[in-house]
Design a protein around this nucleic acid. Structure first.
Length: 197
DNA sequence: CCCTGATTCGC
DNA sequence: GCGAATCAGG
């Protein structure tokens, strides 16, 4: 795969949105996150203001081992960073008028969509249920964006409220959920039948 | 161990 | 220009 214009376009877009290099790599396909990062640097767009593993433009005066001399006498001029972007768009927040303010009003948000299929309690084995309640306290409470292929994607709470998050614990390899949630998500047909009245 | 981005350097 | 290997950190 090579960096065609449209692929670079996607790269720019996603990077701008704060997507991680690995996510971009997956989206594009045929490239590794290293390739993405390398391209990002070559394109000049680098330092984002993203939290997490942000780098420090810190001169590491670390006396490392031998194989890393690296003189680099060039002093970076850093003139005026003119936003010579040919893309005039960018979302300009309309600055929505604050909804007066919601006193102690307990969310009037209408759940526009059906809630995720939270299994009804009577179909879950007591053991599994107990286990879930147990680990749910330890849940990492990830947002949608923070989910990866190795984080439990079990939704908790009402998506229409602020009180909503994903479990985020390490998944049972091969499954989309952690061990506890796999227990309530994947049940043998026979077990369900038996528990039904 | 999982992940993140940064840098180097042979190609 | 490209990106694997490596580095550095959360």
């Amino acid at each position: 795969m090579s960096w065609t214009d449209d692929r670079v376009e996607i790269l720019k877009k996603m990077w701008g949105e704060g997507q991680s290099a690995s996510q971009i790599a997956k989206e594009l396909g045929g490239v590794t996150r290293n390739a993405v990062i390398g391209k990002v640097h070559r394109l000049g767009l680098s330092n984002r203001t993203t939290a997490g593993a942000a780098a420090k433009a810190e001169p590491k005066a670390k006396a490392k081992a031998a194989p890393k001399p690296k003189p680099a006498p060039k002093a970076a001029p850093e003139p005026a960073p003119t936003p010579a972007s040919s893309k005039p768009d960018l979302k300009t927040e309309p600055a929505i008028a604050p909804q007066h303010n919601m006193p102690a009003r307990k969310q009037i948000i209408p759940a526009g969509q059906p809630l995720p299929p939270q299994p009804s309690a009577n179909e879950i084995s007591p053991e599994a249920l107990a286990k879930v309640n147990e680990i749910e306290k330890k849940a990492k409470k990830l947002s949608l964006m923070e989910l990866t292929e190795r984080t439990c994607k079990w939704p908790v709470g009402d998506p229409a409220t602020e009180d909503f998050w994903f479990c985020g614990l390490p998944v049972k390899t091969g499954k989309p959920y952690c061990e506890a949630h796999v227990g309530v998500a994947f049940q043998p047909m026979s077990a369900r039948r038996d528990r039904r009245r």
